[in-house]
């Protein structure tokens, strides 16, 4: 009780703007330092946006914004640059990551909050969080040396025998060179990388739901499935969508792991098993050797990536914040 009262008082004290002591020189300097550091955070974001727009401007002017967006050739020799193959690769790998990663993440969150025996909770939660700490080049190496051969051997080759020559499915799933690298493999690696993020946010959300809701649902005879489906998921619904979008933002911008396994082809292919490229992998691959218009085009790609990921992240944060307040 006393704690609540004192919180109110301090909040009011902070709201009115702290002690205004004209005499205290060090205090004013200290406050200014704090303020400047906080402003630096804003400045960094503005700086990123600014440098992308300025650097990419020549490419946007040369090809037109929508022309650059929809251009499908990336020809360094002829100085023709179109972003579409990279955009399509980015979207496709991110969609695969979401489709595969989201059910697994939510499953892990439900397991941790509802099903797991008490002694198993901490080890599993720790393992999942350590999965988030592993650097992305390690995922890339695992993808290239362990997972890609596996995909080639046990997914692409058998699938090729089945779908070869079929009308729509054939062009979507047939791989010309069953090497294991491609958009599909990149998507699976991305799924693995976003699982810890989505799972830990969803777990926190499920933990925040008042236990009395769950208990009363069990009390009227609901099964675990019904409690999850009709009580927990609707309660956490918006926040789960926010968490998924946060994962999507990460999947879109992930660079190193994707660069290892995506195959880095400049052409656009209909099949999800063919090599492709994403915006981030294209930048990582070409930037150091690029000059002139290619450099501008790569920064313009970065600008597109910035706009897309930040809009998604903003939406995600707003959704999560709304639930946090409610």
């Amino acid at each position: 009780m006393s704690l609540v009262a004192s919180t109110d008082r301090v909040t009011a004290y902070a709201k009115t703007g702290a002690p205004r002591r004209r005499s205290s020189g060090t205090g004013a300097v200290f406050r200014a330092l704090n303020f400047a550091s906080a402003m630096l955070v804003l400045l960094v974001l503005a700086g990123i946006l600014g440098s992308m727009v300025v650097g990419g401007w020549p490419a946007f002017r040369e090809f037109g914004f929508f022309g650059f967006l929809s251009g499908s050739s990336w020809n360094v020799g002829a100085e023709r640059f179109g972003a579409w193959p990279a955009i399509a690769g980015t979207l496709m790998s991110a969609v695969i990551a979401i489709v595969v990663g989201v059910p697994i993440s939510i499953g892990i969150a439900i397991f941790l909050t509802q099903l797991s025996p008490r002694w198993l909770k901490t080890p599993i939660a720790t393992a999942v969080e350590l999965l988030a700490a592993v650097p992305s080049i390690i995922y890339g190496m695992w993808g290239l040396f362990v997972f890609a051969p596996l995909v080639a051997r046990s997914v692409q080759m058998p699938l090729n025998d089945v779908v070869e020559g079929l009308p729509v499915v054939g062009s979507l799933l047939y791989s010309r060179v069953p090497s294991g690298t491609g958009i599909f493999t990149a998507g699976i690696i991305l799924a693995l990388m976003i699982i810890p993020f989505i799972a830990s946010i969803v777990r926190d959300m499920l933990d925040q739901i008042p236990p009395v809701l769950r208990e009363s649902a069990y009390g009227i005879g609901c099964t675990t499935w019904e409690v999850v489906r009709h009580v927990l998921l609707p309660q956490a619904g918006v926040a789960i969508i926010g968490a998924i979008m946060l994962g999507l933002g990460r999947a879109l911008g992930e660079t190193m792991a994707v660069t290892f396994v995506v195959g880095n082809a400049n052409r656009l292919s209909a099949s999800i098993f063919d090599p492709g490229s994403t915006i981030a992998s294209r930048i990582a691959n070409e930037f150091n050797e690029a000059s002139g218009m290619q450099l501008n085009a790569l920064i313009a790609l970065g600008c597109i990536l910035f706009l897309v990921t930040f809009s998604i992240l903003i939406a995600a944060r707003l959704l999560i914040a709304r639930v946090g307040r409610a």
């Binding site: 955070v41 804003l42 960094v44 974001l45 700086g47 990123i48 440098s51 992308m52 650097g55 946060l246 933002g249 990460r250 879109l252 911008g253 992930e254 660079t255 981030a280 930048i283 990582a284 930037f287 920064i299 970065g302 990536l305 910035f306 990921t309 930040f310 992240l313 903003i314 944060r317």
Partner: peptide, 16 residues
């Protein structure tokens, strides 16, 4: 903004 930067693609920071 800080929360956004927390999950910003690191390659963009390299470009910046």
């Amino acid at each position: 903004i800080n929360d956004l930067l927390l999950s910003a693609p690191s390659i963009l920071i390299g470009l910046f």
